[in-house]
């Protein structure tokens, strides 16, 4: 890309602004997006951490599903924690896999919400030599052969690549060394 890529962080709810210094340091332009107009005007997307149920409700309430789905089929998307739940093809709300949740199905993986447990099970990990946070994080329980596992933690895939899309169950944006290797990797591929 001849100009700086514009990265839109979906800003309906969640951890949005923390991405700005990472995106800028990795050579991108940060944009918080929440209307159809704003969504159409960027080159790539970060679906941020937050509450996936809240984001789904708001996407429905504001009629943004088709706009997002259309853009996601053409542009790179990186889903983080709650955002990774919106991306995964199969989403289970509970460990016993009794209840599913709607998603954009951008990556053929199976994911279980809050798979590590509650806040008391939140933890810091090290991926590619960089500190990252798992906060009430989901667990990836199944990965198609076509998906590239970029990193695992304790035998669980946590950083994944599928075509132009990325998925992480951890947060790199809460670490204050800018940019994170993940932001660098994502933005260099736009």
């Amino acid at each position: 890309m001849s100009r700086k890529p514009i990265v839109g962080v979906l800003a309906l709810q969640g951890c949005v602004d923390r991405h700005a210094p990472h995106i800028e340091a990795a050579g991108g332009v940060f944009r918080a997006v929440k209307t159809a107009e704003q969504i159409n005007a960027v080159d790539a997307y970060i679906l941020p951490g937050g509450e996936s149920t809240t984001m789904l409700k708001l996407i429905d309430t504001f009629g943004l599903w088709d706009v997002l789905a259309g853009n996601f089929s053409a542009k790179p998307v990186w889903g983080i924690c709650a955002g990774s739940i919106l991306m995964a093809e199969n989403v289970w709300v509970d460990e016993n896999k009794t209840k599913t949740q709607k998603s954009f199905g951008l990556m053929p993986v199976e994911i279980v919400r809050n798979g590590y447990g509650r806040q008391l099970d939140s933890h810091v990990g090290v991926i590619d030599g960089y500190n990252v946070s798992f906060i009430r994080a989901p667990v990836v329980t199944g990965v198609a052969d076509t998906v590239q596992v970029l990193a695992e933690e304790g035998g669980i895939p946590v950083w994944l690549k599928f075509g132009k899309h990325r998925l992480s169950t951890f947060h790199a944006e809460l670490t204050m060394d800018h940019p994170s290797p993940m932001h660098r990797e994502f933005i260099s591929g736009i």
Binding site: G14, A82, N131, I135, R136, H171, T175
Partner: peptide
């Protein structure tokens, strides 16, 4: 050392809600 602690990290996720 350089990570927003996990307690405040959860609060970051609750923003805008």
């Amino acid at each position: 050392s350089n990570v927003i602690n996990l307690k405040t990290g959860l609060a970051e996720m609750l923003k805008g809600g």
